[in-house]
Design a protein around this nucleic acid. Structure first.
Lengths: 114, 114
DNA sequence: GCTACATTTCCATCATTCTGGAAATATGGA
DNA sequence: TCCATATTTCCAGAATGATGGAAATGTAGC
């Protein structure tokens, strides 16, 4: 669950979401860090900070290629994230008001008399 | 896009994600605020802060019912969020390395000579 | 080795978010 | 009206996150 929260937090920031979308668009070939910085007009330090954040959660991979560091989206991890949301947070249409567990009261057990 | 970032941020916090999942589990009937506070063992002020945060993004609705305020998940907004991720961030299997636009270079235009 | 470019790390600053006690604001029942 | 309960608002302190300049590190070609 920490993994999920971290991934959500990684995408819950405009700059990082934009960067991630660029990488999705770029596909497996990916993009050099500097290229992303160009597109988003970010100073190097800020860019590096955000890319590191995305990489730390696994949503993005990086590989060295000559003088460049190429970032690319990790679709498998993204699928896991979306899968989690669909299953646990009801993104799918199977949003049936689950019946598992005995938590079938709207208000508190202790205070229902109130 | 601000809407998306806000929704992601709302879920990118352990307490709120837990609260949201309780509400998904509870279905349209929802849960009284206090009931959620009980489950998560949160002091009232903290609980209220997080529920308000979720409500502000539209992921959750609230209705007054007697002395209780009942919160419930808004599945429509959640579906929109998951839909966005699937389409723009490639959660679906149609993760084909998009070909739109002329952004088909991995490194910078200006510096490709390097 | 030296130079040029790419990226990261270091560091300080600023901004936002989280937390929870205490008081205020409902709401319902006696 | 008065009391008990439910929830929110007010407020301040603590923690975490974002930003970016400057210096350090890495890599390639001469």
């Amino acid at each position: 669950m920490t993994r999920i929260v971290d991934s959500l937090a990684a995408l819950a920031q405009e700059t990082r979401l934009k960067a991630y979308r660029l990488l999705v668009e770029a596909g497996p070939a990916g993009l050099a860090a500097g290229r992303i910085g160009e597109e988003l007009a970010l100073p190097p330090a800020t860019l590096s900070f955000h890319l590191a954040h995305l990489a730390r959660t696994g949503l993005v991979r990086s590989r060295q290629e000559g003088r460049f560091v190429i970032y690319s989206a990790d679709f498998q991890n993204m699928n896991q994230l979306v899968g989690y949301l669909t299953e646990n947070c009801c993104g799918g249409r199977s949003c049936a008001p689950s019946t598992k567990g005995a938590r079938n009261e709207t208000v508190s057990r202790a205070r229902r008399s109130a």
